[in-house]
């Protein structure tokens, strides 16, 4: 593979000694990097799915508060959503990792900071997903439940939520993929996730192209697996719809 294609002519193929011209993509170097990147995978997965799991709980709570008819329940949810959706996740993690210790008087573990950042950030988006899902269910469903004598809680639990959750699966998958990719920013706080492992490895081998390609492939493997799993879940959930 040639670099700087614009400057390459046919005759240059015969020239030797120009590192820019006969640069070869080194597949061996690429594959050799995998064992060095591998230790980053559990961190990436832990930050992503740990953060998303907490974010999902936050999202259910704040998404439902967001649609409460009671203003003093609704307003804090609106504030939370706007603040954490409207600021960059990178700034959020820097704030948590470097800023919060000044308030708390002690350091925060980088892994914990990463999980917390994904949790509060995805939680804001998931709140909106939950709100949208619940509000998308026709009013007649609630009325039918109430008219049968089900309480408001029972109506939500057995009628509204199962239908809303099915509609939430595609946007939740979307958010999952976004959050997995967001964890790549957390190399800045030194947590040993995929990008961080790549940077460390490149510092000794200088094979940036090969290693970052492998890093990208590993992200893709994770996100494609998630996509596939969600597609199966969705198909299963579509029975009867």
């Amino acid at each position: 593979m040639l670099r700087h294609l614009g400057s390459v002519s046919l005759t240059q193929e015969t020239l030797t000694g120009d590192p820019q011209v006969d640069f070869q993509f080194d597949w061996q170097a690429a594959f050799a990097s995998i064992p060095h990147l591998a230790p980053g995978i559990p961190y990436t997965l832990l930050i992503s799915f740990g953060g998303l799991a907490i974010g999902f709980i936050i999202g259910i709570i704040f998404g439902l508060l967001r649609i409460s008819p009671t203003a003093w329940l609704r307003m804090p949810a609106v504030a939370y959503i706007e603040i954490f959706r409207g600021t960059p996740v990178l700034v959020q993690v820097l704030f948590i990792f470097y800023g919060l210790p000044q308030l708390l008087g002690g350091p925060i573990n980088a892994l914990v900071a990463g999980i917390a950042a994904i949790a509060v950030n995805s939680g804001a988006y998931i709140s909106e997903i939950v709100r949208g899902g619940v509000q998308s269910i026709e009013r007649g469903q609630r009325e039918a439940g109430l008219s049968l004598g089900l309480s408001r809680v029972q109506t939500f639990r057995y009628i509204i939520w199962p239908q809303a959750f099915r509609r939430m699966i595609p946007p939740l998958g979307n958010q999952g993929i976004i959050s997995i990719k967001d964890t790549s920013l957390f190399s800045v706080i030194g947590v040993g996730e995929l990008v961080r492992q790549g940077q460390i490895y490149i510092a000794t081998t200088f094979t940036a192209l090969e290693v970052y390609l492998m890093v990208a492939m590993l992200y893709l493997a994770i996100t494609l697996t998630l996509s596939l799993a969600l597609r199966l879940l969705e198909r299963k959930g579509l029975v009867g719809q």
Binding site: E138, G140, Q141, E143, A144, G145, L146, S147, L148, G149, L150, Y158, I159, P162, Q163, R166, G240, Q241
Partner: peptide, 25 residues
């Protein structure tokens, strides 16, 4: 509400439940 039944214009059956489950819920 437990003593008064209602039938709606738009049926409002629960689409995620089978016919039987709609009735026994």
């Amino acid at each position: 509400r437990t003593e008064v039944g209602m039938v709606f214009q738009q049926f409002n059956l629960f689409p995620h439940l089978s016919v039987l489950d709609n009735v026994i819920l």
